[in-house]
Simulated scan of single mutants.
Amino acid sequence: MDAAFVGLVVIILVALAFDYTNGFHDAANAIAVAVSTKALTPRVALALAAVMNLIGALLSTEVAKTVGSGIIDPPEGSGGLEIVFAALIGAITWNMITWYFGLPSSSSHALIGGLVGSALAAAHSVQWMGILDKVVVPMIVSPLVGFGLGYLFMLALLWSFRRAHVSKANRGFRYAQIASSATMALGHGIQDAQKTMGIMTLALFTAGEIDTFEVPFWVVLSAAAAISAGTYAGGFRIMRTMGRRIIQLTPTGGFAAQTVASGVMVTTATVFAVPVSTTHITTTSIMGVGATRRLSAVRWGVAGNIVVAWIVTLPAAGAVAAVAYFITDFFVG
């Protein structure tokens, strides 16, 4: 068994570990709101999210192709495997730091930042226009869309149910939140599991195990299983931030935020094939819904801390990945 094959196996395992951390890091995106409004208990919500993440991950591979071949030029040989390995270390490290502090940062941008950081450290070419089109623009636009649609959809619901009995309406929207939570988890699976699939396929292509950048079915299945298992493991620290600290939502508001966020996630993955952050979209949808009460109802201080984590994620994960590359290259090279 040669060293290159061993390196490839290690990268596949590390990629699945990242996928697992992505699952428990971002589990809150799908279920925090439903739990905070008491539509679902935490464990039932996690189980629902895990199943729907698994299904969502099996539905498409377009985002995987974007991440694997549209951020950096596919590297070759053992040096290329070092780049992929360092990118994963950077992303996992940043995920664990933000999880520890309960900050819902973007696992997607941590992975992309890791790829860019390790590529730059290796003096490997980066597709800057691809990053602009597929990462930077969606990173700016998608949260604004989430906020705007969350605000408008909530206004539409408030107007449509303005004469409804409050307790009956809340009971109905709690049931509706089960469906919206499931759709959220489906969208998360479509988006986030594919990013790991892209990295695994990039590693296989770099090692010469596949000739074209097509995602093998076993890669799809293993990534889907890993993110599903991670989701069920939960992310209770981040759940508290998403479900309560930004704003305390009603069942109607929870349904509105989840419906908007899931719609944006599924559309960007299936129509535009861009790797948007499920965390960004979910958070801004919640903020948009909350702003329909009054702007002061949103805890902007907490929201500000989250935005800082968003901004820092790409360079921070990139810096850790660069250090990981230098260390790996020192010992392997």
Score class of each variant (00 low, 15 high):
115 L>P: 04
115 L>T: 12
115 L>C: 03
115 L>W: 05
116 V>S: 06
116 V>G: 10
116 V>Q: 04
116 V>C: 06
117 G>A: 04
117 G>K: 05
117 G>W: 02
117 G>L: 03
119 A>V: 04
120 L>C: 06
120 L>I: 09
121 A>Q: 02
121 A>G: 07
121 A>F: 10
121 A>L: 10
121 A>M: 10
122 A>D: 11
123 A>C: 06
123 A>F: 09
124 H>L: 04
124 H>K: 14
124 H>I: 02
126 V>P: 03
126 V>L: 09
126 V>F: 05
126 V>M: 06
127 Q>C: 15
128 W>C: 07
129 M>H: 15
129 M>T: 14
130 G>R: 04
130 G>V: 11
131 I>R: 11
131 I>F: 15
132 L>M: 13
132 L>P: 04
132 L>Q: 08
133 D>R: 15
133 D>K: 15
133 D>H: 14
133 D>T: 11
133 D>I: 11
134 K>M: 07
134 K>P: 02
135 V>K: 02
135 V>G: 11
135 V>C: 10
135 V>M: 07
136 V>G: 09
136 V>A: 15
136 V>R: 12
137 V>M: 14
137 V>T: 12
137 V>I: 15
137 V>D: 13
137 V>H: 12
137 V>N: 13
138 P>N: 03
140 I>L: 15
140 I>T: 04
141 V>N: 01
141 V>K: 01
141 V>C: 09
142 S>A: 13
143 P>H: 05
143 P>R: 00
143 P>E: 02
144 L>G: 11
144 L>D: 08
145 V>P: 00
145 V>Q: 01
145 V>K: 00
145 V>S: 02
146 G>D: 02
146 G>W: 11
146 G>N: 08
147 F>M: 10
147 F>Q: 03
147 F>L: 14
147 F>K: 05
147 F>N: 03
148 G>E: 08
148 G>D: 08
148 G>F: 10
150 G>C: 03
150 G>Y: 06
150 G>D: 06
151 Y>T: 10
151 Y>W: 14
151 Y>F: 13
151 Y>Q: 01
152 L>D: 05
152 L>V: 14
152 L>W: 14
152 L>H: 11
153 F>Y: 13
153 F>V: 12
153 F>P: 00
154 M>W: 13
155 L>D: 07
155 L>G: 11
155 L>N: 12
156 A>F: 15
157 L>C: 13
158 L>K: 15
158 L>F: 12
158 L>Y: 12
158 L>V: 00
159 W>K: 09
160 S>Q: 12
160 S>D: 05
160 S>K: 12
161 F>Q: 00
161 F>Y: 12
162 R>M: 00
162 R>G: 01
162 R>I: 00
162 R>V: 00
162 R>E: 04
163 R>G: 01
163 R>H: 08
163 R>K: 05
163 R>N: 09
163 R>M: 04
163 R>C: 00
163 R>V: 00
164 A>V: 04
165 H>P: 03
165 H>F: 13
166 V>H: 10
166 V>E: 08
167 S>W: 05
167 S>H: 06
167 S>C: 03
167 S>I: 07
168 K>N: 02
168 K>R: 06
169 A>I: 03
169 A>L: 10
169 A>F: 05
